[in-house]
Design a binder for these strands. Structure first.
Length: 724
DNA sequence: CTAGGGTTAG
């Protein structure tokens, strides 16, 4: 019967066994899965009366390998039930693990074998149910506890409260709370936390008053709980009240309560108050500093965020990630990637959250080579299977101008969620592939994935850019009626655009007048642009004036107005607009184009002469302009500010940053590879014509990402069909 | 043989 196992040579066991070996000791030294399996084989081989006991001990030490632990259960015969302590220990362990549901599975298996349970089994079980947010199982366990007469056990009661509070059944939690004969500070806190989660702040206050008049006094943790909830929800009043309570009572304000207070200021956007509080904080800690960084990040104060970060002594992964996302979200992708590089050099290992920020930074940067490099890295480090990562990759490739690679990643995602679908639909929409955008939208509904408001922005955008008025109207209606999604500014913007481009200006105006919120710059801007295309001076003038009320320096509106006045020979008005333009300062955002070459991003401003190959670039520009003129190119100065002479205008337009970037690409690229340019503003009409003609004359593909979409120019035609 | 509550990145 006792034949040696193949692996016995590695872990020699004395045989023959006159005395049972000290299995207990053997088990307690096992750390690896193969070792445990070997011991299991040995236990099963040497059947004796300690059999079950040993298997349970083995089970206990197998808990780091939950699937194996569960499989062990099938080797345990039901005839000699183990004492309760062992299974209870296992329940406790599993209930705290990453997958608390395993505790419930284990419990089910225990019941099938008729293992005994006692009152000590219930707190871990209820903990598992509350962590798994499994109300139905929680209720079942409650029923069982009642049946076995454990409902009056204070430990079971506390766990029941916690379970109901976590699952949102606050009234059930309260019923248990009221029944409890004795309550301590923790019991009160669980109840208060429950009310906080259900956002019932009035009840929180009532309970806090009750607590103060009881013999239990609130402690720092109770206050932390409430403050954290207030800042999450943005409830300033309650936050103030709690602050008063804290100064009245003599609780010791520990660092976690300090952090909660700090966090409250931050969440209310009171960064000056937060800063003075933070200055007083001694010693500082990572959590508080990280909160400060995100606070400054949210109000766009990058310098202040960087300062906090620089002064931190112990930087952990979380604060590095915060700093990276701070730059990524403030549209400073290069800095974000640089920080990521520094972090790696210091040997700090990124996690999924870090990578999401890094991928999003790369998407904003628009550098395709860099994108592929990051994709490789993500796969190499094992993040490549996570859904959020793949969704971010789809978006990244789309924003870097590679619809193909976006589609490729998308095709490999098995369980697509709304974000996967929406990212892909948006990718098609911004690349001008309306058919695919709409097909995927339909397919998404076939597969029972519910679209959200962002999905609708994507499809409506696609419709407006393809002139599909009826389709767009239908989608808008179904969004409101069928999906019960309240239209946002973005949706109204698409509708104004949809009607405006199609020349249905009265419908466009009707949308503007009927929308429940104040029209933004974008709304007036698209109405104005539609009027320009369709020659509707009167409505256009109206829109431009509204636009200037919001933004008195708006280039487009000033140019548009002066052009209308000039056409109508209203010279005094032209003069007024010109004056307005003279007073206008430097425009808030200068035109800027980037192109990636051998892994580096090269940036060009309008009329930029700072590049080291400036001479060659301008020579190339002259050459290209010459070739284009031969096929009929003439500079189109419609979009230039009027206070320049006609010659100056022509020159200014030839020196637009995207033309410089194009020429740099032409002189430095290898072979006939595609030229990809990223521009911060909308591309102007002249540059658009220029790129189209250049793609034909120079026989090269040119892809430009402007502020809102892609222009893929090939053989003299652009993917936007001149509709942007 | 007991346990249960709070803060940070997306």
């Amino acid at each position: 019967m006792a034949h040696p196992l193949p692996s016995a040579a590695l872990h020699p066991v004395p045989a023959p066994l006159r005395h049972p070996p000290n299995v207990t000791h053997l088990i307690s030294t096992a750390t690896a899965l193969p070792h445990l399996k070997q011991i299991q084989a040995q236990i099963l081989r040497n059947s004796h009366h300690h059999h079950n006991h040993h298997l349970f001990q083995l089970l206990l030490y197998s808990l780091p390998f939950p699937s194996y632990a569960l499989s062990l259960l099938s080797f345990i015969p039901a005839d000699i039930p183990p004492p309760c302590q062992l299974p209870n220990k296992i329940l406790k362990h599993l209930s705290r693990s990453d997958n608390p549901h395993k505790a419930l599975v284990f419990f089910q298996a225990m019941q099938n074998k008729f293992f005994p349970i006692d009152r000590f089994s219930f707190p871990p079980l209820l903990k598992a149910a509350s962590r798994a947010l499994s109300l139905s199982e929680g209720k079942m366990i409650h029923g069982l506890a009642a049946k076995l007469g454990f409902e009056t056990d204070p430990f079971v009661q506390t766990a029941l409260m916690g379970m109901y509070a976590a699952c949102g059944l606050i009234s059930e939690a309260r019923t248990v709370f009221d029944k409890m004969p004795q309550r301590d500070v923790v019991t009160w806190n669980i109840m208060i936390d429950g009310y906080c989660r259900s956002r019932l702040f009035d009840d929180v206050l009532v309970l806090l008053e009750e607590m103060k008049s009881s013999d239990i006094k609130p402690d720092a943790r109770v206050f932390t709980t409430i403050l954290a909830a207030c800042s999450r929800v943005g409830n300033l009043d309650i936050g103030r009240l709690v602050q008063e309570y804290i100064s009245e009572s003599n609780v010791v304000v520990d660092y976690q309560l300090q952090t909660a207070l700090l966090n409250m200021y931050i969440n209310f956007g009171a960064m000056d108050k937060a800063q003075s509080f933070y200055d007083e904080l001694k010693p500082k800690n990572v959590v508080a500093s990280t909160a400060m960084i995100t606070g400054y990040s949210k109000i766009g104060n990058l310098e202040a965020a960087q300062l906090i970060f620089d002064e931190m002594v112990d930087k952990d992964l979380v604060c590095w990630s915060a700093m990276i996302s701070c730059y990524a979200n403030s549209d400073e992708p290069r800095e974000a990637l640089e920080i990521f590089g520094e972090m790696q050099q210091l040997g700090v290992k990124p996690d999924q959250v870090t990578m999401l920020s890094v991928i999003s930074a790369c998407a904003r940067l628009g550098a395709l080579d860099k994108a592929e490099q990051i994709h490789l890295y993500v796969d190499e480090k094992g993040f490549g299977t996570a859904l959020p990562i793949n969704n971010a990759l789809i978006d990244m490739y789309a924003k870097c101008g590679s619809l193909d690679r976006a589609t490729e990643v998308y095709g490999r995602v098995h369980r697509k969620n709304v974000i996967s679908w929406t990212s892909m639909i948006n990718a098609f929409a911004t690349h001008g592939d309306v058919d695919n955008a709409l097909t995927h939208f339909r397919q998404m509904r076939v597969e029972n994935v519910e679209p959200n408001w962002i999905t609708f922005v994507g499809v409506l955008y696609a419709c407006s850019h393809a002139g599909l008025v009826e389709e767009g109207e239908k989608l808008f209606e179904s969004m409101v009626k069928h999906y019960v999604i309240a239209p946002r500014l973005e949706h109204y913007g698409c509708m104004v655009d949809l009607y405006g481009r199609a020349g249905r200006l009265r419908d466009a105006l009707e949308i503007v007048e009927s929308m429940p919120m104040a029209p933004s710059i974008v709304i007036w801007g698209s109405l104005m642009a539609a009027c320009r295309i369709h020659g509707e001076s009167e409505l256009g003038e109206f829109a431009a004036k509204r636009l200037l009320e919001i933004d008195p320096d708006h280039d487009g509106a000033l140019v548009f107005l002066s052009n209308i006045y000039a056409k109508e020979r209203k010279w005094e008005n032209v003069g007024a607009v010109r004056n307005a333009m003279k007073h206008k300062g430097v425009s808030k955002e200068r035109g800027c184009s980037m192109i990636e070459m051998n892994g580096d991003m090269h940036t060009f401003l309008t009329a930029d002469k700072s590049h080291r190959r400036t001479d060659e670039i301008y020579a190339k520009l002259g050459e290209v302009v010459g070739k284009l003129r031969e096929v009929g190119y003439a500079p189109n100065t419609n979009c230039v500010l009027v206070d320049l002479s006609e010659d100056e205008k022509k020159e200014a337009i030839l020196w637009h940053s995207e033309k410089l970037a194009l020429c740099y690409g032409l002189i430095s690229r290898e072979k006939q590879s595609t030229i990809r340019i990223i521009k911060n503003l909308r591309i102007c009409e002249d540059c658009h014509d220029f790129m189209k003609m250049a793609s034909k004359v120079l026989d090269t593909e040119i892809i430009i990402r402007d502020r809102t979409r892609f222009h893929q120019c090939r053989d003299g035609v652009c993917s936007c069909k001149d509709y942007w």
